[in-house]
């Protein structure tokens, strides 16, 4: 008895008395690529002398964590990841206005701040695109797609992979893009027709391009910067910017409501919006388009000027009513035609 109780007493005491992890000056959750996160943390520490604790988590996981921690957050600032979850967090008052200076920023970035009441600011943009595995495409003797509508071609039967918009923000952006490009009814007709060629609706938004890179599928739909990265890694992936035009996402940075280190968090926001910081992306292979108009754009990144971008309506298509309506229609009309 004594031994077990003693051991458990020690465990218990240890359990209740361990150090808390918020003694640092700034706690950052980063939803960008690991190397980009590390680089910015080092640069920020060097410039401001503020000690940063950073952990990398995916966008959806971060939002779930911020929700669960609401009221007593352990995170000060959330940097990176697609814009929709940042906007949702803003709408749920999980984040607070950062008061960042937006004068040097591009229109789509300021737009993001305006929609959210200043609670989140756009840091980079990424356009949607189509990718295909050149080796497999040649082996199958197929023509490369050029437009969204090409994807309805029956010769691509079972060759296309795209994520499920119920679980993936990437796929939701695609759905909303179609609706904005073609009008709602036509969009769903096209999506259902493409659905006949889809071999799998993946859960994660970046999975289709990874599968296309390895030849597990021939064609994928996703964000171009993910595709660029895979192509740079050496996979035979070719990227197509659809002829009808395409939608895009804007990554955000937000200060958490009730953050313990608000001042440092605001400094972080200002820092990652600066031209100097944003110009360093290519050092670690980040090919997003930066939001600061004075930042240098990496030559490899998809050139937003040469891509036909639609005037993406974040306010309408980010709203939860629109989202619920479009998704339930997708469940009814698009998903069942898949194999």
């Amino acid at each position: 008895m004594k031994k077990i109780s003693l051991i458990s007493a020690i465990a218990f005491a240890a359990a209740f008395s361990a150090g808390q992890a918020f003694a640092d000056d700034l706690n950052v959750v980063c939803s960008n690529e690991q190397d980009w996160c590390d680089l910015m943390v080092n640069a920020f520490e060097g410039e401001t002398g503020i000690d940063v604790s950073m952990v990398r988590k995916s966008t959806g996981e971060t939002l779930a964590q911020i929700r669960a921690e609401a009221g007593n957050p352990k995170i000060d600032v959330w940097w990176g990841g697609t814009g929709d979850p940042h906007l949702i967090a803003a709408a749920e008052n999980l984040t607070q206005p950062s008061g960042a200076d937006t004068s040097e920023l591009l229109g789509w970035s300021i737009n993001m701040a305006e929609i959210s009441g200043g609670k989140t600011v756009g840091i980079h943009a990424g356009a949607l695109g189509i990718a295909y595995n050149a080796d497999v495409l040649a082996e199958k003797g197929l023509q490369p797609p050029v437009c969204w509508k090409d994807l309805t071609d029956p010769s691509y039967s079972g060759e296309i992979q795209v994520a499920n918009p119920n679980s993936s923000g990437t796929a939701y952006t695609e759905l909303a893009t179609f609706v904005q490009l073609f009008g709602e009814d036509e969009a769903f007709r096209l999506l259902a027709e493409i659905g006949r060629n889809v071999n799998q609706y993946t859960k994660s938004g970046s999975a289709p391009s990874k599968a296309a890179a390895r030849g597990e599928t021939t064609i994928s739909i996703g964000f171009m910067h993910d595709m660029v990265k895979l192509a740079k890694a050496g996979f035979p992936l070719k990227i197509v910017s659809p002829c009808e035009g395409t939608g895009y996402e804007v990554g955000g940075v937000s200060v958490i409501s009730g953050a313990r280190n608000v001042d440092a968090a605001k400094k972080w926001v200002q820092f990652v919006l600066s031209a100097k910081a944003q110009s360093r992306g290519p050092e670690v292979g980040t090919y997003n388009v930066p939001s600061n108009s004075n930042a240098t754009v990496p030559p490899e990144s998809p050139d937003l000027a040469s891509i036909k971008l639609i005037d993406y309506d974040f306010a309408t298509y980010g709203a939860s009513e629109t989202r619920a309506r479009l998704l339930s229609r997708w469940d009814e009309q698009v998903k069942p035609v898949g194999r």
Partner: peptide, 18 residues
Amino acid sequence: NFNVLSTEIYFAIVGAVA
């Protein structure tokens, strides 16, 4: 496309529609 409970639960928590 073989959906199981564990992944459905994960995406009900962290997916695009929480």
